[in-house]
Structures are given as C-alpha cells and as structure tokens.
Amino acid sequence: MTTSGSPPHGPVNAAPPSTRLLTQAALREAVGHLDASLERMFGYHMGWWGERGDPCPEAAEGKALRPALAFLGADAAGVPTDTAEPGAVAVELIHNSTLIHDDMMDGDTVRRNRPAVWQVFGAGPAILLGDGLHACAVDTLLRRGGRHAPDAVRLLSGMLMRLARGQARDLALARRPWRGPKTVAIAEYRAMAADKTASLLGCAAAIGAQLGGASPTTLRTLVQAGEHLGLAFQFVDDLLGVWGPPRATGKESSSDLTRGQKTLPLLTAVGSGTDDGTRLAELLERGLPDRDAMTSAAELADRAGARAATERAARHHLALAQRAFASLGPPSEARDAFDELSTAVIGRTALAADPPRWPEDGAR
C-alpha cells in the first residue's frame, strides 16, 4: 500500500501473494482446455513466460484485483474459499479478455511494460484468444461452480452485457467534439465508466458469494461495493492516463492524451469555464503531435482544477465502497483486507496519503 507523497515505482500488486498463486493454478487449469497456441499466448500475456514459452522472470503479472474481490466477498458472506474459486477464475479470465481486445481497439502497443499480445502474435490470434477466454470463464463456472453455477453464469452474463454497452459508448464518446452542443457531459462519462469498468468489479465482488448461495441483499451490497471501487479505479486510471509515468501504468506514457481520449480529468478541465480549460480544448482539437504538446496539455488540465477534482471523485467512491462492504458486518480480517486492497488501488497515484472524506449525502 502506498501512503507516501509520490507515486509507486511500479504496478501495485493488489492481491495477497497466496491469493495470486491460488488463482494462477486454477487459471492454468482453465486455459488448458484451449488450443495449445492460445494457451501459450495467454501465458505470455499474464507474464508467466516469454513469447516462445521460455521463462521470463522479469515479466510483470497483473494485480489480481478481481480474484481478490471474489474471495473477500465470499469471506464477507461466510462462503469457503474453494467454493468461491471458480468465480475468481471466471472474472480474471473476463478481465484479461477485455484487456487483450481493448489494446487492439485503442491501438495500445504496450501492456505490462512489454509488447501487447496483438503486437507479438497478430490481431487475428489475439481476437481468438479474447473470445476463448470468455468461453473458458463460462466453462469454469459450469464445470466447477456447483449447484449455484447457473446463478453465477447469469450474474456474469448480465455484467458482460453492461461491459459491452459501456465499451460501445466509449467508442461513441471518442468521436464527439470537445466543445459545442455535442460535447460529452460528465454524467455521460460516468454512466459509461459504470458499465465499462465498474460492472466487472461489482460482479467480481459478488460472484464468490453467489456460488455459496448468499442472500440477495448480501449480493446487492457486494455489487454496490465493487462498483464504487470500480469507479474509483477508473478515475485513478484516468489520472494515470494524463499524468502517470509508464512504470506505474505498464503502458505508454500519456496514452489518453495521445489518443485524445474522453476521460474525467480532460472533460472536467475543458468544461471548467477557465482560460486554461479553453486553451486545453484548442490543443486537443488540433491534436498533440509531440511530447511538448502533451506536457502543455497536462499542465493546462492541472491548472484548470481537473486533477484535484478527479482525485476527489476517486476518494469519494473509495469511501462508499468501504462503507458498503463494512455494512455487511464481515469478519475483521476480511474488512481490513478489503480496506487495504481498495486503498492500494487508490495508492497508484498516492491519493491514499490523505484519508477519505465523506461527501455530503446529497452528492451521492
């Protein structure tokens, strides 16, 4: 967990090592049902080995945030770890499927500080891998999920519908202008982020408990906690997309600025009514051809108050996530682990240096 005044020097390993190892074994079992070439590609993507299947100890693995949420949600509902594990595997497979497809759609060539899957193996195989991971997620739930597996599949499929809707809206927002009557409203962006990003974390938080037959009230609360954490995660990602160094993102620096992506800080700055916001809109409309232009754009957004506003929004949803999880009365170990996990997500930009402040009730 990062609590200092400077960002971490690498991706945060959000899940405890024991959780990551437990899920890795189950992940390998799940993708073992794919064609061997796709299994090798997935291992490369996960940082388990190099592109030829050779050991690659320097490769970075993901944060395993979603499996950790599945296990913590199960803990809060009194569901055993082995019952929750198929759900943890399923949401991690879906998450990585979306990363592989997103990199192609966004034209991102780097993932976890090395070439993205589609850059190494080609776009066609990468599309097949993403599709195969979807199938593996459902297969894992149906093979290993027990008597509540159909309910977990319904939870997963509902999330996938929202995720696809959010991705479609994200692509549509990218084509909208920065100024004028068709500009993107903050509310539109938040709704897109809730579907594209937060829905998966909501599903992750509830799916382990769902496999254990938790009550509808418990499941709704876990979804709520996960979705608030998902929005906090997205807003931190937006901050990193403008101000984050590649070592913290695992991607190319200022990738959102390069693409002119509609994100919370950029939309906040452009809509701020300040001179800096107006100048930023002009820059974004012309495009940012080089590093100097991107640096200028980031400075303008900061001066327009966008960085501070996005940090506040992330803290707001972090606090609501922690409040929702605590309302279930989970064991103290699970509550503390959730708080530490969620604060580590925010800690990617050192926001955890300041304690969360509760917004006014009317702002929720």
Rank of each mutant, 00 (worst) to 15 (best):
R112P: 03
R114K: 15
P115Q: 07
V117Y: 13
V117E: 03
W118E: 11
W118R: 04
Q119T: 08
G122W: 09
G122H: 11
G122Y: 10
A123Y: 06
G124R: 14
P125M: 07
L128P: 14
L128D: 15
L129V: 06
L129A: 10
G130A: 01
D131M: 04
L133V: 05
H134C: 12
A135H: 07
C136H: 02
C136I: 02
V138Q: 03
V138F: 10
V138C: 07
L141A: 01
L141K: 12
L142E: 12
R143F: 03
R143W: 04
R144Y: 09
G145Y: 06
G145F: 11
G146N: 06
G146V: 08
H148E: 05
A149V: 05
A149N: 13
P150K: 11
D151R: 14
D151N: 05
A152Y: 01
A152P: 09
V153L: 07
V153G: 02
V153T: 02
R154N: 09
R154E: 15
R154Q: 03
L155I: 04
L155Q: 12
S157W: 01
M159H: 02
M159R: 02
L160K: 01
L160Y: 01
L160D: 04
L160F: 01
M161F: 05
R162T: 00
L163P: 00
A164Y: 00
R165N: 05
G166C: 11
A168C: 13
A168N: 09
A168L: 13
R169L: 12
R169H: 08
R169K: 07
L171M: 15
L171I: 12
L173E: 01
A174P: 06
A174K: 14
R175W: 08
P177N: 10
P177D: 10
G180R: 08
P181E: 06
P181F: 12
P181Q: 13
P181S: 09
P181T: 09
P181W: 14
K182R: 13
K182E: 10
K182T: 01
T183K: 14
V184R: 07
V184A: 09
A185T: 13
A185E: 15
A185Y: 06
Y189E: 11
Y189N: 09
R190E: 15
R190S: 06
A191H: 14
A193C: 08
A193I: 14
A194Q: 11
D195C: 00
D195Y: 00
S199V: 00
S199N: 00
L200T: 05
L200F: 05
L200K: 05
L200D: 13
L201G: 05
L201Q: 08
G202P: 02
C203F: 03
C203M: 08
A204K: 04
A204I: 09
A205P: 02
A206G: 03
A206Q: 01
A206N: 03
I207V: 03
I207K: 10
I207M: 08
G208R: 06
G208L: 05
L211Y: 07
L211D: 04
G212I: 10
G213N: 07
G213R: 13
G213H: 13
G213M: 15
A214K: 07
